[in-house]
Amino acid sequence: MDNKNTKLRMLINCSIFAAITAILAQVEIPLPLIPISGQTLAVGIAATILGSRQGAIAMVCYAAIGGVGLPVFAGFSGGPQVLVGPSGGYIFGFIAAAYVTGLILEKTKFTIPMALFANIVGMVVTLIFGTLQLKLVLDLEWGAAMAAGVYPFIVVGLIKAFLASWIGITVRQRLLQANLIVGNQKETA
């Protein structure tokens, strides 16, 4: 496959996962400040399947289309006010989390246990970004920021990390077999 087709396939994959993130964002459990949503599940699946670079690009696309006003964020919201609001740090955290999760897998192995570890690290990255912005925007004390921005997400985050790992590795293996994504040399050797 030539370089042009590879780049096109990568762009299509990133676009698909930005769309999947937008869809899963609408699966939400409302909480007082930040809802629990399917976004982080989508981030983990994207990073596990696509790896660091493409996973992060997919999340940049997601943040960009939401940032210009398309209603792709949780609760069918969108616009720059969301990115600079209390929940915006989580969205920026998705980019970093996708990159870190994918990088861990690229440096180790694409297995379910490693994917679980990588997705848990990605969850922590997202929570750090999100809680920091939540604290700053709402001028909260650290305890209040942690109570609103971390604690409610730990158990469900671990469940989503497991699901992202299992789904991501299973789908990644099938996509590699069908030659729909490009794996690293350790996987294909």
Rank of each mutant, 00 (worst) to 15 (best):
Q54V: 00
V121M: 11
P71L: 07
Q81R: 11
L176M: 08
G67F: 06
A58M: 04
L50F: 02
T21E: 12
I167P: 02
N13F: 03
V82P: 04
L31A: 08
F17M: 15
Q177N: 12
I29L: 14
G89Y: 09
L163A: 14
G44E: 05
V100C: 04
V68Q: 08
I29V: 15
A148K: 13
L138H: 04
G88L: 12
I49V: 14
L33K: 14
I91N: 03
F129I: 11
V182R: 07
N184E: 13
L70V: 06
G66N: 01
N184S: 14
Q81V: 11
V124T: 15
A178C: 00
A25D: 15
I167W: 00
Y99C: 02
A18C: 15
K7C: 01
P86I: 12
Q81T: 15
G79W: 10
K186T: 12
G38E: 09
N5Y: 06
L83C: 06
S15L: 14
G44A: 05
Q185L: 13
P80H: 08
L132P: 01
S15A: 15
A118D: 02
L158I: 14
P80Y: 15
T131C: 15
K107Q: 08
Q173T: 00
K7T: 09
Q81C: 03
P86R: 10
I16D: 10
V43F: 09
F162Y: 14
A161C: 09
T108E: 00
P80I: 12
F94A: 08
E28R: 11
L103Y: 01
K160V: 11
I120N: 00
F94V: 09
L127V: 07
D2Q: 07
T6M: 07
M146L: 15
P32K: 09
S37Q: 06
L132I: 15
S15R: 12
E141Q: 14
N184T: 10
K160E: 11
G157L: 08
L105A: 03
A98W: 00
A118S: 13
F17N: 13
C61L: 15
L31D: 07
G149V: 09
N184H: 10
G130H: 07
T108W: 00
V72M: 06
S15E: 05
D139W: 04
I20V: 15
A74Y: 02
I91C: 11
F73D: 04
T6F: 03
L11E: 05
V125W: 08
M59N: 07
M146A: 15
I65K: 08
V84Y: 09
